[in-house]
């Protein structure tokens, strides 16, 4: 698998967020996987950016990502217009493990900020397989809630919290998660800021499996540079594992928060 060329089909912007859809040859992927994406802008910025997959349609040859402007690379991606060329390597990384077939207890998907997109991809798969789930989304303000209509269209509207109370319940997403855990869950899937992930892992420990998608600065995205490692407990030993290769999805009980 090498880097493939893609053409930007749309780039829908809302505030600092954009949903970038590109067309080209698309290999089937699984929720939680990502691509290393780069525009045609010469040697600076040099490295491609890891973007989790929001959606894909291999038959139609389309891929979409949702990103937030944080630095130079993401600003350049934000400014892409239809017809612009990008290159992407992927799908990469270990996806979320799918829950067993329908019939088991529901699962919870917990997303914060730009951690939401891979969970939307997962929700779409769960809906297609008729596996019951709750989608809990936390954001700073109502303007930071993402893809709420898309999620509602799948049949399960997200339960939202905002830190300022501008939409949904005021507070953190961990509050509705505590309620859901008490009601009984089969597993928890989470992606978002480190503080949120750490809290989710703590709440799930010893009760239900938690599958966390971690973020890290990446060099290569395919396992060779060892730039994206995180400390993980494996067989009782503390080891560095690559977010791009052994992750980005890790068992919440194995992640060492240092």
């Amino acid at each position: 698998m090498g880097v493939r060329p893609y053409t930007v089909l749309h780039n829908e912007r809302r505030g600092p967020y954009c949903t970038l859809t590109v067309g080209g040859e698309v290999e089937p992927s699984e929720p939680g996987q990502f691509y290393m994406v780069r525009g045609d802008w010469g040697a600076d910025p040099l490295l491609p950016r890891p973007l989790s997959i929001l959606g894909e349609d291999p038959a139609a040859g389309t891929l979409s990502f949702l990103l937030k402007v944080v630095g130079r690379g993401s600003s350049l991606l934000f400014e892409l217009e239809p017809g612009h060329k990008v290159t992407a390597l992927g799908p990469l990384g270990r996806p979320f493990p799918m829950p067993p077939a329908p019939g088991g207890p529901p699962v919870a998907l917990v997303g914060g900020g730009v951690g939401v997109p891979p969970l939307v991809f997962l929700a779409r798969r769960l809906a297609a397989e008729r596996i019951p789930y709750a989608f809990l989304q936390g954001a700073r303000t109502k303007d930071d809630l993402l893809l709420v209509e898309d999620l509602a269209a799948l049949g399960t509207p997200p339960l939202c919290t905002t830190e300022d109370g501008s939409a949904g319940a005021k507070g953190l997403v961990t509050a509705p998660l505590a309620v859901a855990l008490d009601a009984g869950l089969g597993a928890v899937y989470a992606c978002g800021p480190e503080g949120m992930l750490k809290a989710v892992a703590g709440m799930c420990a010893g009760r239900v499996p938690s599958h966390l998608s971690l973020e890290a600065r990446m060099g290569c995205g395919y396992g060779v540079c060892l730039g994206c490692v995180v400390p993980i407990s494996r067989g009782g030993a503390r080891v560095y594992e690559r977010v791009c290769q052994e992750g980005p999805v890790f068992d919440g009980e194995a992640v060492l928060w240092e």
Partner: peptide
Amino acid sequence: SEGNKPPRIWETQGGMLNAIGLQ
């Protein structure tokens, strides 16, 4: 070697810094 503590890389103008620590 287990290598250095993260963060290990940073992108700079036309290049990158790494301190993997020979993991």
